[in-house]
Simulated scan of single mutants.
Amino acid sequence: MRILETASRLFYGLGIRAVGVELIAEEAGVTKKTLYDRFGSKDDLILAYLRARDGLWRSTLVKYVNETDGPPEAKLLATFGALHDWMRERNPRGCAFVNAHVELPSDHPGQEIAREQKAWMLAYMEDLAAEAGIRSPDALAAQLLILHDGACIANSMGSVDEAARRAEEMATVLIERARTR
Score class of each variant (00 low, 15 high):
residue 37 D to Q: 10
residue 60 T to L: 05
residue 101 H to N: 06
residue 85 D to H: 14
residue 95 C to S: 11
residue 34 T to N: 10
residue 134 I to Q: 01
residue 42 K to S: 14
residue 89 E to R: 13
residue 132 A to E: 03
residue 86 W to V: 08
residue 44 D to H: 15
residue 61 L to W: 01
residue 80 F to W: 09
residue 112 E to N: 04
residue 86 W to N: 14
residue 67 E to K: 08
residue 116 E to W: 03
residue 144 L to K: 04
residue 137 P to H: 09
residue 42 K to I: 08
residue 100 A to M: 04
residue 115 R to P: 05
residue 100 A to V: 10
residue 83 L to D: 08
residue 119 A to G: 01
residue 31 T to S: 15
residue 80 F to K: 11
residue 126 E to A: 15
residue 145 L to W: 09
residue 99 N to P: 00
residue 105 P to N: 07
residue 39 F to I: 02
residue 108 H to G: 13
residue 116 E to T: 04
residue 42 K to H: 10
residue 130 A to S: 13
residue 84 H to W: 08
residue 118 K to S: 13
residue 55 G to A: 03
residue 27 E to L: 09
residue 98 V to R: 13
residue 107 D to V: 12
residue 31 T to Y: 03
residue 130 A to T: 02
residue 81 G to L: 12
residue 113 I to R: 05
residue 120 W to M: 06
residue 145 L to C: 15
residue 102 V to W: 03
residue 80 F to Y: 10
residue 111 Q to R: 15
residue 69 D to N: 13
residue 148 H to A: 12
residue 112 E to D: 10
residue 54 D to Y: 06
residue 119 A to L: 11
residue 94 G to C: 01
residue 40 G to E: 07
residue 119 A to I: 07
residue 118 K to P: 00
residue 133 G to P: 04
residue 57 W to K: 07
residue 53 R to C: 01
residue 100 A to N: 07
residue 73 E to C: 03
residue 95 C to D: 05
residue 34 T to F: 00
residue 129 A to E: 03
residue 41 S to V: 07
residue 47 L to E: 15
residue 109 P to A: 11
residue 40 G to N: 04
residue 26 E to M: 07
residue 66 N to S: 09
residue 141 A to S: 08
residue 114 A to H: 02
residue 103 E to C: 00
residue 45 L to Q: 12
residue 52 A to D: 15
residue 117 Q to P: 01
residue 134 I to G: 05
residue 72 P to A: 03
residue 73 E to S: 04
residue 88 R to V: 14
residue 127 D to F: 05
residue 58 R to A: 00
residue 125 M to H: 14
residue 53 R to M: 09
residue 80 F to H: 12
residue 131 E to Y: 00
residue 145 L to G: 05
residue 143 Q to N: 11
residue 143 Q to T: 07
residue 28 A to R: 01
residue 89 E to S: 10
residue 25 A to Q: 11
residue 69 D to F: 04
residue 97 F to L: 02
residue 105 P to E: 08
residue 127 D to I: 04
residue 72 P to M: 02
residue 41 S to M: 08
residue 50 L to Q: 02
residue 71 P to S: 09
residue 101 H to G: 03
residue 128 L to R: 07
residue 49 Y to P: 05
residue 144 L to N: 06
residue 31 T to L: 07
residue 125 M to P: 08
residue 49 Y to N: 06
residue 37 D to R: 10
